[in-house]
């Protein structure tokens, strides 16, 4: 083990972090760092060459994740991480492409891409950090903000109805759907690994505390208090009906693995369908030339 100054061994995750960019920008008691920590653990357990793994993020607090992971990593435009990842995967099918971003990015501005990638069973893994708020821009209402929660653009409380994200992606055809909180570190890590191993569109929602904006505006204490809330109020219910997964303000959160099924991925369908229709004349996508 390499030694740091002061004779402390190297942190075991350093090989997958851009250490020259640490400390990261996330606030004290933010849950994104924990989600990243679980992700790195899952990557270390995942039997796949690391050089062939790429991480794509959009914009927002969670959009910064790609910038800290020492793999091929892309920090794209707001909401467009999934289509960017779609291009990356289709152009280089041997890549394992992971989209790691936030709820506002993936479900609001990127919502159309999310449902279509699930519909196509695009072979990418999506990790969605849901902190119920637009944190990077200062705590505005998101399509995931629970009804009654306060945000800087719902200063009298949110009258609107939030998305049930597992229901959304599940009904569009995702092959793996799970939800955990940032406190469920072991289960989250295992779930992330399962999602990585799953062919097709796999999706894990990670409920994570936003201390500076969500917790503060709603007088819920710090991120640690939210972690304690998750501890007391999350219910593990594998295979729960997707319709039951609505999240209400400070009510119980159902977590678990809800969908784990198999259907042909976009690329499998491309190869199988066109191969059948065109016979010998068909040349698969992998055989297409690289740009050089």
């Amino acid at each position: 083990m390499k030694k740091n100054a002061g004779n402390v061994p190297e942190h075991p995750m350093e090989n997958l972090l851009r250490m020259d960019r640490i400390p990261h920008i996330w606030c004290s008691t933010c849950g994104i760092g924990t989600a990243v920590s679980c992700f790195i653990q899952a990557l270390q357990n995942f039997d796949y060459p690391l050089d062939k793994i790429a991480v794509v993020s959009g914009i927002g607090c969670s959009g910064r994740i790609a910038g800290y992971i020492k793999l091929d990593s892309f920090h794209t435009t707001h909401g467009r991480a999934i289509p960017f990842a779609t291009g990356l995967k289709l152009a280089n099918p041997e890549l394992k492409v992971i989209v790691f971003s936030g709820d506002g990015d993936l479900v609001s501005i990127g919502g159309n891409h999310l449902i279509h990638a699930a519909r196509r069973n695009m072979d990418i893994t999506v990790f969605c950090v849901n902190n119920f708020i637009y944190a990077m821009t200062g705590g505005q209402c998101a399509p995931t903000t629970p009804t009654d929660a306060n945000s800087s653009t719902s200063p009298y409380g949110n009258f609107d109805h939030p998305f049930n994200i597992p229901l959304l992606v599940g009904s569009c055809g995702a092959t793996y759907v799970a939800r955990w909180t940032a406190l469920h570190i072991r289960r989250l890590t295992r779930s992330m690994q399962e999602a990585l191993e799953k062919p097709g569109f796999s999706f894990v929602e990670i409920i994570a505390p936003c201390s500076t904006l969500y917790a503060r505006r709603n007088r819920l204490g710090t991120g640690l208090d939210l972690m304690k809330f998750y501890h007391d109020n999350s219910v593990i219910q594998h295979g729960a009906p997707l319709e039951s997964l609505d999240i209400q303000f400070q009510k119980k959160i159902i977590v678990g693995k809800f969908i784990d099924k198999k259907r042909p991925t976009f690329l499998e369908a491309w190869d199988q369908y066109l191969g059948k229709k065109l016979g010998d004349k068909f040349i698969s996508a992998e055989k297409g030339i690289r740009a050089a």
Partner: peptide, 28 residues
């Protein structure tokens, strides 16, 4: 399909352009 490569009809032009940028980094 006769040449070897991918055609994908995206959900909109926002996604189309993002996919094109991604694919270029993927080496096509």
């Amino acid at each position: 399909p006769h040449v070897g490569g991918i055609f994908i009809q995206m959900e909109d032009e926002l996604g189309s352009m993002a996919a094109v940028v991604g694919a270029s980094w993927g080496g096509k």
